[in-house]
Write a protein that binds this DNA or RNA. Structure first.
Lengths: 112, 112
DNA sequence: CATGACGGCAACCTCCTGGTTGCCTATTGA
DNA sequence: TCAATAGGCAACCAGGAGGTTGCCGTCATG
């Protein structure tokens, strides 16, 4: 059972998108619900605008952000769905581990 | 605020480790609390033993599994701590987003 | 004690990732 | 209308990730 709930899509791409400090920082900036332009998201970072753009597209492909063209700006905002999907997956795994926690002690005991 | 709780270590490496289907499958196999040898974890997969070994080391570096040498075997078992760390981070982000959900709706309604 | 199972190590390959630079288009607004 | 701002596109690069093969050491046991 790779996925606790087969109805949900593969969570690996979401985790992969979350597995980068720069992208976590971007998500954090967007955490206040405001949609921001690429230029706005590129300030306060040592990276170039293009690097930020690439990261935003990774987040978008994973469903973690959505983009909207407004005039000459591309505004990005956080999406809850993908985050909830990741949370649901981890909760499912955690629950699975909880259910069999008793057997975990066998790990140490099986050593001999 | 990149990390909701600065006392916690950087969650990015954990998410990066989770961002691969093969590794999620390995974690899932270990979800019953049983410690398994590399050979045991290498059955039922098209990959070679060495590929599985590499994935297990990635999981171990992220703290998601622990290894124990038993005779000629290396047994791996799931660790709860790193998983809880990832869950705590996502919960923190989710809570942050909840607090400002009202402002999000304008964007979402336009984008969807 | 010899043989097979377990697995570590290292080299190698390919493709992806994170980042850069350069350039071009489109929108804005004085 | 024209300069400045926002950003898309493409080439390029270095390094890392995922995977393989080959070989060698170690432990268990018939």
């Amino acid at each position: 059972m790779l996925n606790p709930d087969p109805a949900l899509p593969d969570p690996a791409p979401i985790f992969a998108a979350l597995g980068d400090r720069t992208r976590l920082a971007l998500l954090s900036k967007l955490g206040d619900g405001q949609a921001r332009s690429i230029a706005a998201l590129s300030t306060d970072t040592a990276l170039t605008r293009q690097a930020i753009t690439k990261h935003l597209h990774v987040l978008q492909d994973a469903g973690l952000v959505a983009s909207l063209r407004v005039g000459r700006e591309s505004r990005f905002a956080a999406r809850r769905e993908a985050l909830n999907e990741a949370r649901a997956y981890l909760d499912g795994v955690s629950r699975q581990w909880d259910d069999t926690l008793g057997r975990l002690k066998a790990f140490v005991e099986d050593a001999d």
